[in-house]
Design a protein around this nucleic acid. Structure first.
Lengths: 157, 157
DNA sequence: ATCCTTGCAAAAAATTTGCAGTTAG
DNA sequence: CTAACTGCAAATTTTTTGCAAGGAT
């Protein structure tokens, strides 16, 4: 139990080489404008570089994430999702089909401040995730997305 | 890929039987005042009911969670964590040792409202998680928690 | 009686790692 | 050169599931 990367920032390489697989992972993720899981990204990456392994995608997402070049999402649903857009924005996840989109409400600093005065922790930041129903899944409108493909979700932002 | 429970609310039993294992899971989780992972809870539950299986703990956490009796956390760090306290409160996770504590800043309704006007989704709620350094891990103070046991974390709330 | 629950063991899914061979800087 | 990176396969970890037996209502 507990093998996955520990919270303590561990072994991060001194220099970041921009190898071909790494470049493609980054490029594809950014180009996608969606919030794919590692294996979804893997499929797309392989379209450009048929030999990359899933392990490499994982390794790169990890490295890039720690280098601050992409964001790791940890939303619900079991798998991690990755976001090529850094910077302050939050996410909504459809409770029904799993689709993820961006949202930007502006109160980031305010939230951290509020937490600071309500906790003994030294607050470094936060993660804000809304849960809701996406336009395709909300009731009363046309039947709720026959085959919801959380993967190829189009980004709102 | 994607076996874990889908976002779409699936098979939930019509009637909730309060069996012995289930009672213990609930009781222990609530008594704990911490945010254990399934296997951590499993260990404690077995102290009272030596034959429960990990699968049962998982199943019960799932059922209880969907019944609204406990909360499923989905914080980072790989494993899910569970919270026996329902109601509006958020969490802080120590970036270093993984400890999780409660925080309660009051602006829940406000956040949802903000998201509503910033997204096409029908907002149902949100999850707000802060990242920070717990008292034991923040710099400048005595050496940072020799053996950080995220499990037995005492709750702040 | 019914049908929800359970334990066990096995399966599946998600992520990580060891290693020997590349490769970028 | 050499530390970083890669593919591959195997290992780990976490979570889920099938099934026959047990238990609550």
């Amino acid at each position: 139990m507990m093998t996955r990367r520990d919270a303590n920032t561990p072994a991060a390489p001194a220099t970041l080489r921009m190898t071909r697989p790494r470049k493609v992972v980054l490029r594809v993720l950014r180009g996608l404008r969606s919030h794919p899981t590692a294996d979804e990204l893997y499929v797309k990456v392989r379209r450009r570089l048929p030999n990359v392994s899933l392990a490499t995608v994982y390794r790169n997402l990890d490295v890039l994430s720690r280098a601050g070049l992409v964001r790791t999402l940890e939303l619900g649903g079991g798998q991690r999702r990755y976001d090529g857009v850094c910077g302050n924005h939050d996410h909504v996840r459809c409770a029904r089909c799993g689709r993820v989109a961006d949202v930007d409400i502006g109160s980031h600093a305010r939230l951290d401040a509020a937490a600071r005065s309500a906790s003994a922790f030294e607050i470094l930041g936060h993660r804000l995730e809304f849960v809701g129903l996406c336009p395709r899944c909300r009731p009363r409108r046309g039947k709720p997305a026959a085959n919801p493909t959380p993967a190829d979700t189009t980004r709102s932002t």
